[in-house]
Design a binder for these strands. Sequence first.
DNA 1: TATATTTATTGAACATTGTTCATTACTTTT
DNA 2: AAAAGTAATGAACAATGTTCAATAAATATA
Lengths: 205, 205
Amino acid sequence: MGVAERKLREKEQLKNLILSGAKKLFLEKGIEKTTIRNIADEIDYSIGTVYVYFKDKDEIFNGLHSQGFQQLRSLMLPLLKVNDPMERLKALGHIYVDFALDNPDMYELMFSMKAPMAYLEKARMDEWNEGQATFEILRKTVGDCLEKGHFQGHQLNPLTYLIWGTVHGICSFNSNGRIMCVQEEPSEELVRSSYEEFTSLMERF
Amino acid sequence: MGVAERKLREKEQLKNLILSGAKKLFLEKGIEKTTIRNIADEIDYSIGTVYVYFKDKDEIFNGLHSQGFQQLRSLMLPLLKVNDPMERLKALGHIYVDFALDNPDMYELMFSMKAPMAYLEKARMDEWNEGQATFEILRKTVGDCLEKGHFQGHQLNPLTYLIWGTVHGICSFNSNGRIMCVQEEPSEELVRSSYEEFTSLMERF
DNA sequence: TATATTTATTGAACATTGTTCATTACTTTT
DNA sequence: AAAAGTAATGAACAATGTTCAATAAATATA
């Protein structure tokens, strides 16, 4: 039966169309100001259709949230080839900072907004696979660093969490508008130079 | 004229009453689910009255945002007495982490939500005084550390920003629900142990 | 004190949102 | 060609932020 398969494919396509319309509007006019009606208009479907393919708005948020993590992951995976773990760690952070600066709205959706996580809770999915997968890449690298004698006397989990937290922290101030407190330089510069401070700190271990 | 003064005082009081009602509901049922009608009900005034005292909902968010920074600041100021700057730095971070863990909703309002900053922009107040003031406490302390020979070869601004970013990063994962990726331990423990990792890293400089 | 004026409070009404669901249009099967 | 099944629709509903003419209360004036 090719029909059933085609229908499945079409369903998937329309789901993606809705997501891409949503993403376009998110980037154009901001996440908060994008409504279901806007999304429906954008892709020339009715409101009701959107609700056939997505249970509610949070599920749309979650869909884009997932896409964002896939994108970030695909940027990170090639770096697993870097043999020296400290170099790999620094490169991972660099990619991460670039991603956050290039995609502040996506970054906000992925790491600040409640909605995507609220959907996971509603859907009783207590696991956040995308986050976990990304975390694993980092943990593996930090583990390799420990094995090579870096960060002596530190524990894997809290250290990994600390490193992610650090890079996330300097990025998130940028994406959520809390960076004005040091106004002498443009905020992107401040984020990058802070990350440089961080890598030069890590190098000593 | 005592009347005008009394009226001013009463105005201030009602403003505070609205804010405290809002805060109560925020903590009770979450920020997102608190409506203007709820706030008005809570304090036995009408919707309209709320709008006499606050231009819009963002201004209420901003009011609580300010109160949060005042509270955090008042927790930090006593630590300026600590003479050794590295000890002071660690103590400041500790206070900060405690505040974030004890007040996750307030923390989210202060450092993640768009609304309070959106209000500043709307009101054409390009300065974020509360944030700046808090940042200054930290910058002063980091500056003292540099003078005493810590963090050699690092620059004041990016380093200060990095340190704030680090502590904020590990806290924010907790308040915005992105901490599930390491599930072996309760999230509060992970935040605290990560902060310990951080202080023990800093101590070496 | 009685009246006029200013100030404070109100809540009905509006626009916009997320969401639902009976109805319509279209596809596939018989 | 008709029946059965699937997909798409948009009017309708409830809830929200917001406004504003009308009301009530407080103050100033005579």
